[in-house]
Amino acid sequence: MVLIVDLVLLTLLCLTALAIMLVRHLFAVVALTGAFSLLSAGLLVTLDAVDVAFTEAAVGAGISTVLMLGTLALTKRREARSPKLSPIGLIIIFSTGATLIYATPDMPKFGAVDSPGLVHIVPSYIEGSENDIAVPNIVTAILASYRGYDTLGEVAVIFTAGMGVIILLGRRREDEYGYSEESAAFPLRPETSNDEEGKDKS
């Protein structure tokens, strides 16, 4: 049953990705990317990675979709021109995909007790999390301590992306309402009229 669900989700992911490539209406593309994130979250749930699925659903289908819809409010709804297919890009994509498919059989089976992660890493986390960190929740101990720098990097990336979007949208709105860079830099400086400027020059 799980295999059937995985195959259905994988098929839907492939169809959604193909639709994203072919559709030229940007609003439809945003909706499809949100659906792609939800399907990815469902696939992660079947792999027992509920925490990663929650992050994918919140960031991919939630925050990213809202940001892209906000961006569409300031841009056109349709793509300006259809991009040309690059033979070099296609070769790189198919070569990478073929390499991943070729290497997949060498991976340990899902849930195998003799996989390297379960043999070497997981026991140290289970045995040492309470003694080393004094945190009863093993997942929290891994994310906050063992993988603390990795989590900090992920938060920094999300924060940087959000600030970049806010800055871009903010600059566009300033231009739309007629704010210049000088008035934005000195918002409290009183504006002088033309008569006062003429008196100062005389």
Rank of each mutant, 00 (worst) to 15 (best):
residue 182 E to H: 07
residue 85 L to N: 08
residue 104 T to P: 03
residue 118 L to K: 14
residue 172 R to S: 03
residue 73 A to G: 12
residue 182 E to Q: 13
residue 134 A to R: 10
residue 83 P to K: 02
residue 94 F to Q: 13
residue 179 Y to F: 15
residue 103 A to R: 11
residue 148 G to C: 06
residue 88 I to Y: 05
residue 56 E to Y: 02
residue 200 D to E: 13
residue 170 G to S: 12
residue 30 V to Y: 07
residue 10 L to M: 10
residue 151 T to P: 00
residue 38 L to I: 10
residue 160 T to A: 15
residue 114 D to V: 09
residue 172 R to V: 00
residue 161 A to W: 00
residue 181 E to H: 01
residue 44 L to F: 02
residue 163 M to W: 06
residue 137 N to M: 04
residue 51 D to H: 15
residue 136 P to C: 10
residue 82 S to Q: 06
residue 129 S to A: 14
residue 84 K to N: 10
residue 89 G to Y: 06
residue 65 T to R: 07
residue 103 A to F: 09
residue 92 I to L: 14
residue 149 Y to F: 15
residue 157 V to L: 15
residue 132 D to T: 07
residue 76 K to M: 11
residue 43 L to M: 13
residue 123 P to N: 01
residue 179 Y to N: 03
residue 133 I to C: 08
residue 112 A to E: 15
residue 8 V to K: 12
residue 198 G to T: 14
residue 21 M to S: 08
residue 7 L to Y: 06
residue 163 M to P: 00
residue 122 V to M: 04
residue 60 G to V: 01
residue 1 M to P: 07
residue 39 L to T: 00
residue 115 S to C: 09
residue 139 V to Y: 11
residue 104 T to C: 08
residue 43 L to P: 05
residue 125 Y to K: 04
residue 44 L to Y: 05
residue 87 P to A: 06
residue 95 S to L: 15
residue 127 E to T: 11
residue 115 S to T: 05
residue 201 K to N: 09
residue 50 V to I: 08
residue 26 L to I: 05
residue 178 G to D: 02
residue 11 T to Q: 10
residue 1 M to V: 09
residue 116 P to M: 04
residue 124 S to Y: 09
residue 143 L to Q: 05
residue 46 T to V: 04
residue 59 V to F: 02
residue 101 I to L: 15
residue 199 K to C: 12
residue 67 L to I: 13
residue 117 G to Q: 04
residue 12 L to N: 07
residue 196 E to H: 06
residue 162 G to W: 02
residue 184 A to Y: 05
residue 80 A to E: 07
residue 129 S to M: 12
residue 164 G to Q: 02
residue 60 G to E: 03
residue 27 F to H: 14
residue 108 P to F: 02
residue 67 L to M: 11
residue 91 I to T: 09
residue 110 F to E: 12
residue 33 T to S: 13
residue 150 D to S: 11
residue 96 T to I: 13
residue 200 D to Y: 10
residue 33 T to M: 12
residue 10 L to G: 07
residue 156 A to G: 13
residue 50 V to P: 00
residue 53 A to Q: 04
residue 202 S to A: 11
residue 181 E to W: 03
residue 23 V to I: 14
residue 199 K to I: 14
residue 142 I to L: 04
residue 195 D to F: 12
residue 200 D to C: 04
residue 25 H to T: 05
residue 139 V to L: 11
residue 92 I to K: 13
residue 100 L to Q: 13
residue 154 E to L: 11
residue 70 G to K: 02
residue 158 I to M: 09
